[in-house]
Amino acid sequence: MSPLPGPDQPATGLPAPGLPDVVATSRLRLPLVSPEDAEGMLAGRRRVSWHPDYPSRADQDAAAMVRRTAPEGDACWGMRHLVRAGDGTTVGSIGFFGPPEPADDEVPEVEVRFGLVPDARGHGAATEALSALLAQTDRLGTRVRAGVAPTDARALKVLARCGFTQLRGAGLEGELVMVRPLPA
């Protein structure tokens, strides 16, 4: 007799679709921000392993979206710390604004945001982190979009390097909405 599926597995025995709790590359780890870390970020508390400039105001805004209790599978689509694997220092964040939802063409789509402390910029970390998350979203058949200020040349370069080739227009606050098509 086979065991009953656990909460992470549907009756087929296959893992439930979603992103891993930690996405890793050779130079980076991208663990989910825990509700405790989010509360600390909002209260101005810091961990010793965080860079002195982390979290930024934008990181704190993203932390406000981390919920203590999220529907099963939704938490993996949240904010992540961007941690250098070599020294374990958290130098930024990257993540999604919630689980995928069908776009107008019914393709599941999610919005990403990312940011680094100034000392960590210019070394490819944002491109590497975004590429690692895109490999996961591609595996799940999820398209990714990003809102970016038209004056943010660094973010525009990261998005271009990662294949965000479609311009969908401008958002309510004047940001460009860029989309990365799913690979064929």
Rank of each mutant, 00 (worst) to 15 (best):
residue 1 M to L: 15
residue 3 P to N: 11
residue 4 L to T: 12
residue 4 L to C: 13
residue 5 P to D: 10
residue 7 P to C: 00
residue 7 P to I: 09
residue 10 P to S: 03
residue 11 A to W: 11
residue 14 L to K: 14
residue 16 A to P: 07
residue 17 P to H: 05
residue 19 L to S: 10
residue 19 L to Y: 08
residue 22 V to K: 04
residue 23 V to N: 09
residue 25 T to P: 11
residue 25 T to I: 05
residue 28 L to W: 05
residue 29 R to G: 04
residue 29 R to D: 12
residue 35 P to W: 03
residue 35 P to V: 00
residue 35 P to G: 02
residue 36 E to Y: 06
residue 39 E to W: 06
residue 42 L to C: 07
residue 43 A to H: 04
residue 44 G to L: 05
residue 49 S to V: 10
residue 50 W to T: 11
residue 53 D to F: 07
residue 56 S to C: 09
residue 57 R to F: 11
residue 60 Q to G: 15
residue 63 A to C: 08
residue 64 A to P: 08
residue 64 A to L: 06
residue 66 V to T: 07
residue 66 V to Q: 01
residue 66 V to Y: 01
residue 67 R to G: 02
residue 68 R to S: 10
residue 69 T to K: 09
residue 69 T to N: 13
residue 71 P to W: 04
residue 71 P to R: 08
residue 71 P to G: 02
residue 71 P to H: 03
residue 71 P to T: 08
residue 72 E to V: 14
residue 72 E to C: 06
residue 73 G to C: 10
residue 77 W to K: 03
residue 77 W to S: 01
residue 77 W to C: 03
residue 79 M to A: 05
residue 80 R to W: 02
residue 80 R to Q: 05
residue 82 L to C: 06
residue 85 A to S: 14
residue 86 G to P: 12
residue 87 D to K: 05
residue 87 D to H: 05
residue 95 G to V: 05
residue 96 F to H: 07
residue 98 G to E: 07
residue 99 P to S: 05
residue 100 P to G: 04
residue 100 P to L: 01
residue 102 P to L: 02
residue 102 P to S: 00
residue 102 P to E: 03
residue 102 P to N: 04
residue 104 D to P: 10
residue 105 D to M: 13
residue 105 D to V: 11
residue 109 E to K: 04
residue 113 R to D: 12
residue 115 G to D: 15
residue 116 L to F: 02
residue 118 P to T: 11
residue 119 D to M: 07
residue 120 A to W: 05
residue 120 A to D: 12
residue 121 R to G: 05
residue 121 R to E: 13
residue 121 R to W: 01
residue 122 G to C: 04
residue 128 E to V: 03
residue 128 E to S: 00
residue 130 L to T: 01
residue 130 L to P: 04
residue 130 L to W: 02
residue 131 S to R: 14
residue 131 S to F: 06
residue 131 S to E: 15
residue 133 L to M: 14
residue 135 A to M: 13
residue 141 G to N: 02
residue 142 T to W: 12
residue 147 G to K: 09
residue 148 V to S: 07
residue 150 P to Y: 06
residue 150 P to A: 08
residue 151 T to K: 13
residue 154 R to H: 10
residue 158 V to H: 02
residue 160 A to Q: 12
residue 162 C to D: 10
residue 162 C to N: 11
residue 163 G to W: 03
residue 164 F to C: 03
residue 164 F to E: 04
residue 167 L to S: 14
residue 167 L to P: 07
residue 167 L to A: 14
residue 169 G to T: 05
residue 170 A to H: 15
residue 171 G to R: 01
residue 174 G to P: 10
residue 174 G to W: 08
residue 175 E to P: 08
residue 175 E to H: 12
residue 181 P to T: 08
residue 182 L to R: 04
residue 183 P to G: 14
residue 184 A to F: 06
